[in-house]
Amino acid sequence: MGIKLTIDGKEVEAKNGATILQTARDYGIYIPTLCDNPALEPYGGCRLCLVEVEGMPKPTTSCTTPITEGMKVKTVTPQVERLRKTVIELLLSDHPNDCMTCERAGDCKLQEFAYFYGLRSNRFYGKRRQYTKQDGNPFLERNMDKCILCGQCVRVCNEVQGVGAIDIAYRGFDAKVCPSFENDLNCEFCGQCVSVCPTGALTGRIWSKKGRTIGIKEVETTCSYCGCGCQLNLHVRGNEIARVSSKPDNHNEGWLCVKGRFGYEFITSPDRLTTPLIKRDGKFTEATWDEAISYVAERFKKIIADNGPDAMAGLSSARCTNEENFLFQKFMRAVVGTNNVDHCARL
């Protein structure tokens, strides 16, 4: 049985237990937020999603407030707009505002809100947090002076990844997300925290200066590591992969592991084989495709002619595509003429 309420005068209905924000989202009503993530527990930290509810003395955070029957919600009022603007100004007053060189420019929620609220100048100024410590891990870049304390990284690490490598330390203005005792990050390096960070506070180390949004083409594909089959978005710039992300609406819910997220560098490894090689006198020599193909075909044909097709065998790979495997066994069976074909499913 649904609960009926109105949001901005529109009659809506949702399940008991839903929050105002969830309900609004379902009906396409936009409420700004920096700390909410549908995959995580409601937090109520950033205060951008404040709405007015009839009968409540003060604005309330839509991300944490459960809906009730007959509730009347207003998502845009002069008061909540003023409060949202103040919140963003406050955040910007403690932010490096170095969007020019920031890895996340164009893909940063804080920047986006500053844009929407037209915040060129700021009523507030004062001390800014500045951190110099570089984390020693090879995967994640942590620029904590860009952190807006939305807590998404803390929650995703704890709630989703089950690791709990980070939490908020210190009090007041100096509150800071860090590993215990400010040690270097020592975790599973899944980068889930990076994927939920709304600003440039957390980025991939190898993403640095590979491209932001301009000139980036996203290609959706399937991860080539384990059998989970996670959906990846390869961010391609030119002929290079700039970084990897994943969409929250896929079967892996946008989550990836360290290999899927950061393990693509092998593609451009200098060790890649770039030309056919034929071993002559125990040494590999480079060959053209025509040479290699006809050489292999001849040798195969000779073995078949001399010893029958069952003197040939093929080993295929669980790393290759279905189509390649299909063609491979078809090659062995239809062209070579043997059922001596297998793969490495057992390992």
């Binding site: 093929g314 080993l315 790393r319």
Partner: peptide, 9 residues
Amino acid sequence: LKGLYIMGE
């Protein structure tokens, strides 16, 4: 077995 063709293994 004389000839073996290994793909990606």
